[in-house]
Structures are given as C-alpha cells and as structure tokens.
Design a protein around this nucleic acid. Structure first.
Lengths: 220, 220
DNA sequence: CGCAACCTGACACCCGCCTGTCATGCCCGT
DNA sequence: ACGGGCATGACAGGCGGGTGTCAGGTTGCG
C-alpha cells in the first residue's frame, strides 16, 4: 500500500512518514501544496493524508482539483482541533475522514486502515482466500490456522493482492503500490517475491496471467 | 543453565546440542565415556544427558562413578525403547529420569526443564521475584504484568539467579553456568549483563555483594 | 585517603535475515 | 521449434540487533 502525505511542517511530515513506513506502507512526502497536487494527480496512491493548513495553495483547493480530475483516491484530512468550518468544507470537497491535530499516531493509522479497507470494498479487517487469512490489524498471516512468517515486502505484496482479490494485477501496478517513487521499474523483484510467497503459502495461491500480471482468486 | 551431553553417535549428539542451544542452554558435548566422565566430574553442570550405549566405558559405570564422587547433578538417561533392564539398573545407579530412544526433542527438553526445576527445589515452571515473573516454558519475562524483552544472555543470567533466589552467586559460578567450556574467564561480561538487566527490570532487583557476587532476593 | 571492586556508556564486531540482482532454465503460445 | 515471458536458485550488500571489550567514572571498604 502506497501513501502520499501532504504536510508543510517538515518535522511532522517526516515523523509521520517514519511512523507509516514502520507500519508497512510505502510513503511519499510532499512538503507543499503544489508538489502534493502534482504527485496526487500523477501517481497511484492507495490513500492520501492531507494537511489543510498549507502555504501557497490551500489544502482544500488541492483536494477539490483532484476530485474534479476524477481521482477517487481516499483522502484523510488533518484539521486543527475543533475547526468545524474546515470539517464542513472538507466534506464538501470530498474528504473521506478527519483527524484533528494534535493526534495520536495510533489513531491515524487505524483510520487509514479503515479507509483503505472501505475503499477496496472489504468490510472486515481480515482478508482471506481459501485457508489463508491475513489480519491487517496485527499484520499476521495464517494458512489453515498455522501462523506463517512473511517478511515486510512479502506481506505488502500479498496484502495488495488480497485487497484486489479476483482481479488481475499488473507487475507495474504492484511496483507502483508497494514501492515509493524512485524505484527501478525494470527489475524482477515482483517475480521473485511472488515465488517466495508461493513457496510459503503454496504455489496455487497466485496464478500467473501471461503478459498481464498476477491474480489471487478464491480457490474453486 | 549449562548441560553436558554424553553421546557416542556424533550425528545425534551434535543434533541434540544444536536443539538444546536453541532452547537457551550452554552445552558441552562428550563423544565417549571417558571424556564424559572427566567433564562431568570436573565441570559444573545443571544437568547431564547420558546415553547408556557407550563404547569403552559403559554409561552406567560413568553414572555410578559420579555418584560415588558425591556429584548430585541431575542425570537424564537415554535408553533403548523398552529396555527395561537398563531402566532398573539406571535407577539403581542414580539416574533421575529416562527418555527412550527414539525420542521427540520436544519431550526431552520438557523433561530436562522439569529435572532442573526439581533439582533447584522449585515446584512451578514460573520463577518469580517481586513483580517479576519468568516463565521457563515460554521463555518470557514480565514485570508487573508487562512483557519485557530480554536477549538470550540476559535471560540465561536472570534465569540462573532466579533458580538460586536468595543465594549469593559468584561471577565465576555465573560464567560456569551460562557459558560453555572455552570462555575467557577474566572478562567483565557478567557485570555488563547485570547492568543491562537492571536497566530493563529495575536496579533494585539484583543486589551486589562486594567481593562475593550477586544475589537476587524477594524484595522486602 | 587510596585502592580495588564494580558500574556503565560507547564502540566494534559478528551474525542472521531481508532484499534486490543476476544467470539460468523452463514453459507457453505461436 | 523458437522467442519472449516467467520461475527460481544462488549470491552479495545492507541493516539491525546482540554481544563482548574497553576506558573512564563511581562506590565502598580497610
């Protein structure tokens, strides 16, 4: 899962980035509205964290533009506490959730998870396929009840596939969502990690669609 | 906790050693009866695993000699399955427990734990002092209910002190029981690890007895 | 007061795991 | 059967945590 943070206060921004990377996300950080607008329009994010108090371009304007461009990426807005007007304006502009500053990183991460879950159409914090279960809360995976140890990247890849169960996911899409901006596109890491996941969870779990990508389906 | 394995079949011996080191013991391995006899007589072990089917000197003879020397180290004997005569003879010679070959490593470790626990006069698998609990089964430690992360060596040291709660334990004794044979005696690691444990569990837990060693007491 | 015992922060090494790269081999579709 | 796409084993660099060493400071005893 890949995120964008748009936050002009560098300390807070970096701190957030660290926390979210620690939670297993790939994170890009934009330090002003313009950069944020550009990245949000041109890159693929699974969610965006947007601070409203930006210099240059106002956060609301940024959000508004994205929506007008047809971007439906879920957006979580950071507002000053009790700033009711922001909240209302944000709602109108198409924000999906709010967190008031100052906030607990814990809470923000929980809401993010919920946001991404909702946007991928899943109701539960558990993603499953066959006898495989992935708990997005604890970050743990089991197969037939037995815990399976996955590394960070393996987890991200599996998690993305589960969030898009049944759909075909291209290698580029996976790279876009698992890594942040600067990553060598012509690398075969995705293939390597697919192999590693198959080795741990069984080869049948991920099917290859030649020329298109991979797909994780409910076994028949 | 330091163990001696006396086992002539090299594969099995090494395998056992690995398993037991994995379980957090310091392990010496003797591959014949003579070496076993010598080590068992001259080193400090918390328990000995003795295979009866030894070349040169018979296992029973070894055990018998130790007992005659007044060694009370608990001994766990490995016997061929259903070899009832071995069992009886072993009992007479002063063995403390039996495991029939082939055995589950799991079971052997469980019996070892029980053996060591009994020999140190503790009834339970939990060692405690004040609000600190150490579960020898799971290898986990808590302080006031909160889990505390200890490294392998920290755990061994704490565990040894808890097994001898209230007694003064010298630095050499600690080295003897925590490390295996070849270890630099004039090193200050013990001091270092005492410091580290104090930092994690509170300075009051281990008291220094100047010139003699350390002692872990029930707080008053 | 002076010495020895002990404490403790900093450091460097080592080791295991993770991760991306590469070379090679396989397999499928044409 | 051939070519491109994919699979996979092996490998090296990096990173982080654990461990032992050391130096300098502190403490307590005679």
């Amino acid at each position: 899962m890949r995120l964008l943070i748009v936050e002009d206060e560098p300390n807070l921004g970096q701190q957030l980035k660290n926390a979210l990377e620690g939670a297993g996300y790939a994170v890009d950080l934009a330090t002003d509205g313009e950069e944020g607008l550009y990245l949000g329009s041109n890159e693929q994010y699974d969610a965006i964290i947007l601070d409203l108090g930006l210099p240059e371009i106002d956060g609301l304007t940024v959000l508004d533009r994205w929506r007008k461009e047809g971007k439906s990426t879920p957006v979580l807005v950071l507002t000053a506490r009790d700033s009711w007007s922001d909240k209302v304006a944000g709602l109108d502009a198409g924000a999906d959730d709010y967190v008031a500053k100052p906030f607990q990183t814990e809470e923000l991460i929980a809401r993010l998870r919920a946001l991404i879950r909702r946007s991928s159409g899943n109701a539960s914090a558990e993603l499953t396929a066959g006898d495989i279960r992935l708990d997005t809360r604890s970050g743990k995976v089991t197969k037939a009840g037995e815990p399976v140890k996955l590394t960070a990247q393996e987890y991200k890849l599996l998690s993305y596939l589960l969030h898009h169960k049944g759909k075909v996911v291209s290698r580029t899409e996976l790279i876009d969502h698992i890594y942040d901006q600067d990553f060598d596109r012509d690398s075969n890491t995705i293939e390597v990690f697919v192999t590693r996941i198959r080795k741990k969870l069984g080869a049948e779990i991920i099917t290859t669609i030649r020329g298109l990508g991979y797909s994780l389906d409910e076994p028949s």
